[in-house]
Amino acid sequence: MNIIKVSDLSKIYKTGTMETIALDKVSFEIKKGEFVAIMGPSGSGKSTLMHILGALDKPTSGEYILEGKNVEKLSDDQLAEIRNQKIGFVFQAFNLLPRITVLQNVMLPMSYAGWPIEKREEIAKKYLTMVGLGDRMYHTSNQISGGQQQRVAIARALSMNPAILLADEPTGNIATAQAEEVMAIFQDLNNQQGHTIIMITHEPDIADHAKRIIHVRDGKITGDETNRRPRLAKNFSAKK
C-alpha cells in the first residue's frame, strides 16, 4: 500500500527575473513500513523535497498524495492539520522550546490536536520512556545533551502516531555515539513497530541504516536502490 505518491513534482523559486529550479518533475512512491533515506549534496533539492513532503511548502506543479489525499492544493490551515495528524518531524536543530519542560515539549502537537491533558501526559510519558528519557521528563531542554534532545524530538514526532516520520539530517548536530542511538531508535521503530520513516541526509554512513536509498542531484532523482543489508546500529535497546 502506497503511503506517499509523488508525480511530476516541481518547485521553482523566482527571484526577480531569475528562476531557480529546485525540483524538476520528481516522481516516486513510498510504501507503508519503509525506511527511506533521501541522499544528496547540499543544493540538490533534498531539503525542498522534504519541505513539500512535510506539508511545510507547496509544489509549483505536480501531485503529492499522502494516504490517498491530495495535499498540494490544501489551504494553510488544512496543511497545518496534515502536519499535526500525519507527519512527525525530527529536525537537525532539534527545535525544542527551551523554556518549557521536556514533557511539555512532547505534549505540544497533541495540544494542537485538542486532546485532553490527561491523555496528552500519558502518551508523552509513554514515548519519553520508550526513547530512554523517563527520568528526564521535568528537565528543560537546555539541561540535557544534544543526543537526548534529539530523542525528545523523536518522542514528540511519535506522539500523534503519524503516518510518516520525517527526519531532516537528524544526526547532523550530535556526536557519533549519540547518532548511533538515534539510528538504533529509528531501526527499532521501523522493524518492531512498522513506522514509515523518511530521512534526509548527506552522510552515506547514516543513509546506510535505511532499507532504501533515493539519490537526488540538481532537483532530479538520480538513483533509487534497495539497501539489501542495512547497517545495524549498535545494541541500543530503545525500550529500556
Binding site: 497545518a80 502536519r83 505540544l108
Partner: peptide, 16 residues
C-alpha cells in the same frame, strides 16, 4: 520567529 515556525510545523493553525 523560530518558535512560531516550529509551532506551525507541529500543527498550530493561524488562529492558534
Amino acid at each position: 520567529t523560530r518558535e512560531i515556525g516550529l509551532r506551525k510545523a507541529l500543527g498550530a493553525k493561524k488562529q492558534t
